[in-house]
Design a protein around this nucleic acid. Structure first.
Lengths: 133, 133
DNA sequence: AACGTAATGTTATAATATAACATATTTTAA
DNA sequence: TTAAAATATGTTATATTATAACATTACGTT
């Protein structure tokens, strides 16, 4: 693991490319469909690439949608905590940059729970959809 | 729907009973297994009961674990927002009573996003496991 | 009683994800 | 520079999670 974090294998890069060019989060089998012309043939190839990309923080999973999204940030620490705003109308997902971990850490401590990481999925209506409705 | 919210059907009550007596969140097929002696025979019967129980706020889904848990509160407003503390060691799940919605609403508004509801799943170590390790 | 709504029972199947194993490639270090 | 170790790949099969479709039953409302 002395290897640089930005050296991806062919499958990993293929999956990441698809996610980075997607407007919404993608499901694993949608990724499979989109990458079949690029040599990926089986679900496991997608899931393995996703596992690695998540591990290094390039991709996050949106648990409530069983979907995956490329991280827009420079570097998300090791793919642990995530906070998303998810538009209920257009499916746009934006990642909260603002660090909410310290807030959760405090809330957790109040009930004697040692905070380690979190998933936060906030649903609502994005700015664009508000204006168009 | 003029019916009282606390009148559950047989299947719904059966599923709720199992969840209320469980120490950890249960998966749907675990519920199916546990309820087969009580007449539930197919996954769909479990999922339908769960859907209803979630709708009325008696049960919540923990998305990152594909698991279901009975709500300990008097009345969780219509099964929308949830906030959980999940122990990484013993799987104990506790629901945050404290209302964090206003905090999220504020955070969301800062980026012009209209907060509607949320799922929050905080992982860490519970008080009991801290002491025993 | 007749209607509308919700719940049920049942079979089949869709959607999501991993196991197992053989092979290939890359990294590390002797 | 090559052998061992670690990582990634390819492939088939299968496990897990969840819903579709449709016939039937229960039940509250009028």
């Amino acid at each position: 693991m002395s290897e640089a974090l930005d050296t991806l294998t062919k499958n990993q890069q293929t999956v990441l490319d698809i996610l980075e060019s997607a407007k919404e989060p993608l499901k694993a089998y949608a990724i499979l469909f989109d990458t079949q012309k690029k040599g990926i043939k089986a679900p496991l190839q997608v899931y393995r690439a996703l596992d690695k990309l998540i591990e290094i923080g390039k991709v996050h999973k949106i648990e409530s949608k069983n979907s995956y999204i490329a991280c827009k940030h420079k570097s998300c620490d090791a793919g642990t905590s995530t906070s998303f705003l998810i538009c209920e109308i257009c499916d746009l997902v934006t990642e909260l940059k603002k660090n909410v971990s310290s807030y959760f850490s405090k809330q957790s401590a109040e009930v004697n729970f040692s905070y380690s990481k979190h998933n936060l999925e906030i649903y609502g209506i994005c700015n664009n959809c508000k204006r168009n409705n």
